[in-house]
Simulated assay, not measured.
Amino acid sequence: MKRTLPALLVCASLLVVAGPPAVAVAPSPTVAVRHASARAVTQPSVAYGPSDLVPGLPRTVREPGRQPHIEYVPRSEAQRPGTRACSAATGPYQRQAERYLGREVDGRQSAGDCRAIRRFQQAHSIAPASGFAGPVTGAMVRVLRARKDPNRAGHCPDRAERTVCVDLNRQLMWVQQDGRVILDPVAIRSGAPTMETRTGTYRIYLRHRRHISNLYGTSMPYAQFFDRGEALHGVYEDIFSGAGSHGCVNLTMTDARRAWEVLDKGDIVHVWGRKPGV
Rank of each mutant, 00 (worst) to 15 (best):
K148R: 15
Y48G: 10
A160G: 13
Q94K: 08
E77H: 14
W174S: 01
R142I: 14
C156G: 11
P74W: 01
R108C: 07
L144T: 09
P81K: 03
H155R: 15
Q122G: 14
V136P: 06
R80E: 04
A40R: 12
Q109R: 13
R59V: 15
P64S: 08
G107P: 01
E104C: 11
D106C: 10
R159G: 08
D113N: 01
P128W: 04
R170F: 08
G102F: 00
P74Q: 13
A139I: 13
P55H: 05
G131N: 01
C114Y: 01
R115L: 11
G102K: 02
G131P: 00
A78R: 06
R103W: 00
P58D: 09
S87H: 06
H69Y: 15
A133Y: 03
I70M: 10
S125Y: 14
A97R: 08
V61H: 07
R84H: 07
A127M: 07
R119M: 08
A38C: 11
T90E: 00
G154Y: 01
G112N: 07
L101Y: 02
D52S: 15
D149K: 03
R66N: 11
T60A: 14
P135M: 13
S87M: 13
R119Q: 10
T137A: 06
A40M: 12
R99F: 07
V164M: 09
P135L: 13
V175G: 03
C86M: 13
H124P: 06
V166N: 10
G49L: 02
R103M: 00
A97E: 05
Q176A: 10
G82V: 01
G65C: 10
F132S: 02
T90N: 00
A153V: 15
M140K: 07
P135E: 07
G102V: 00
A127N: 05
I126S: 02
F120A: 04
S125N: 12
P44W: 10
V41Y: 08
V54P: 03
A127F: 13
G112K: 09
P44V: 14
G82L: 05
A40V: 15
Q122A: 15
D149M: 06
R59Y: 10
R108D: 03
P44F: 11
E77M: 14
P135T: 15
Q176I: 04
V61P: 04
G82C: 06
S125H: 15
R152N: 04
L53T: 09
P150V: 15
S130I: 00
R75G: 14
Q96C: 10
Q96R: 09
V73C: 03
A116G: 07
E161W: 03
T90S: 06
E98I: 13
P58E: 05
R80V: 15
Q171C: 04
Y93V: 05
V54G: 12
Y93N: 09
G82E: 03
A160E: 05
G107T: 03
C165V: 15
E98R: 02
P50V: 01
R115G: 02
V105K: 06
Y93R: 13
R75W: 10
G102C: 01
R62E: 14
P150C: 10
R152F: 08
G112I: 06
R103E: 02
K148Q: 15
M140E: 02
G134T: 04
R159I: 11
A85G: 02
P128G: 04
A146L: 08
D113I: 04
A40K: 07
Q171G: 01
T60E: 13
